[in-house]
Amino acid sequence: MNYKMIVTDLDDTLLNSQGKISLKDKEAIMKAQEAGIIFVLASGRPTYAMRDLAKELNLAKYGSYILSYNGSIITNCKTNKNILEETLTRDEIHTLYDFSKRNNVEIITYLDDTIVSEDYSSYIEVEVDLTKMPFEKVKNFKATVDKDCVKCIMLEEPTYLSKVEKNLKDELGESFSIAISKPFFLEVTKLGVDKGSSLLKLAHMLNIKQDEIIVVGDSYNDLPMLKVAGLPACVENAKPEIKEICKFISTSNNNNGMANLIEKLIFKK
């Protein structure tokens, strides 16, 4: 198969434990783009927190893309324009806030390029560190969030958060797309929006067939895009449930997993 697109998750997939792209992975990605492969960064991260990585990989030069907020926004790196944007309404965000209070979990959202919450904890600090975005602790979440936003995250200790996930799906699963990314991040986007649905829209725009797409991931919020890929792949450190559905398992994110995949699947080495 002649693949035309590689789509990859960031944290624990493309990025190593230091949050960096290895030199070998970077060189392989450049080589693939030079050969005409469209490269897509697909993450739960905000667009703001992905731009430096896109710049590092020269995505603008090669006409590649960012798929951010778990698929809520797709950005054409060459034009720096959003070609898709799906948001939660203000009232939907307020509904999620009320749920978070009833279930004793923290909640954040993104107001323009600022993370907003009534709380601040070690879990929220992880998101602030990952995204490098400004954080604002507010007295009244509902009063502050007075317009549509792209995504909410509920945060808490993983064992408890998995119970909250079940409660959320039972109570509001017909109204939102819900997925665990990191064990302490429960991510909520507009109903029907996930990495998979947005990837299919992008592929349609570019006249790329599903069987011409390689997707690489490691965790549960990658499942929707892995399921629509021609070739679902993962890194060696992926969750067991992810490995079960993948046709190719690469080396780990700390052992040049992307370079190994590109060499084997694109350049047949």
Rank of each mutant, 00 (worst) to 15 (best):
M1E: 08
M1G: 11
I6W: 03
D9M: 03
D11C: 05
D12Q: 13
L15M: 09
Q18W: 00
G19V: 00
G19F: 00
L23E: 15
E27G: 00
I29R: 00
M30C: 03
A32R: 00
Q33K: 05
A35G: 02
G36N: 03
F39G: 03
V40Q: 06
R45A: 05
P46R: 00
M50Q: 07
L53C: 01
L53A: 07
A54G: 15
A54H: 07
K55W: 06
L59Q: 08
A60I: 02
Y62Q: 02
G63T: 00
S64Q: 05
S64H: 06
Y69W: 10
Y69L: 06
N70M: 04
S72Q: 08
I73F: 10
K78R: 15
K81N: 13
N82I: 09
N82F: 13
L84H: 12
T87G: 00
T89R: 08
T89Q: 08
E92S: 11
L96R: 06
S100H: 07
S100T: 07
S100K: 06
N104V: 06
E106I: 06
I107D: 01
I108Y: 03
T109R: 00
T109E: 01
Y110P: 04
D113H: 14
D113A: 05
I115D: 01
V116I: 15
V116M: 04
S117I: 09
E118R: 06
S121K: 05
I124N: 04
V126L: 11
V126M: 10
E127T: 04
E127I: 10
D129K: 13
T131K: 01
M133C: 08
E136K: 14
N140K: 05
F141Q: 01
F141W: 02
K142A: 00
K147M: 10
V150D: 11
K151E: 08
C152A: 15
E157C: 02
P158Y: 14
K163I: 13
E165P: 07
L168P: 08
L168F: 12
K169I: 15
K169T: 14
D170A: 12
D170N: 15
G173T: 13
F176I: 09
I180G: 01
I180A: 05
F185T: 02
K190P: 07
G192P: 12
V193P: 09
K195L: 10
G196T: 05
L200G: 01
K201H: 12
L202A: 06
A203K: 07
I208A: 04
D211E: 15
D211M: 08
D211L: 09
V216M: 14
G217L: 12
G217N: 10
D218L: 04
S219V: 09
S219P: 02
N221C: 11
L223D: 03
M225R: 05
K227R: 14
K227M: 12
V228S: 06
P232M: 09
A233I: 00
A233R: 04
V235W: 12
K247N: 14
K247R: 13
T251E: 13
N253D: 03
N255F: 11
N255A: 12
N256R: 01
N256A: 07
M258W: 02
A259I: 12
A259E: 13
L261W: 11
E263S: 13
K264G: 01
L265G: 04
L265M: 14
I266E: 05
I266R: 02
K269Q: 13
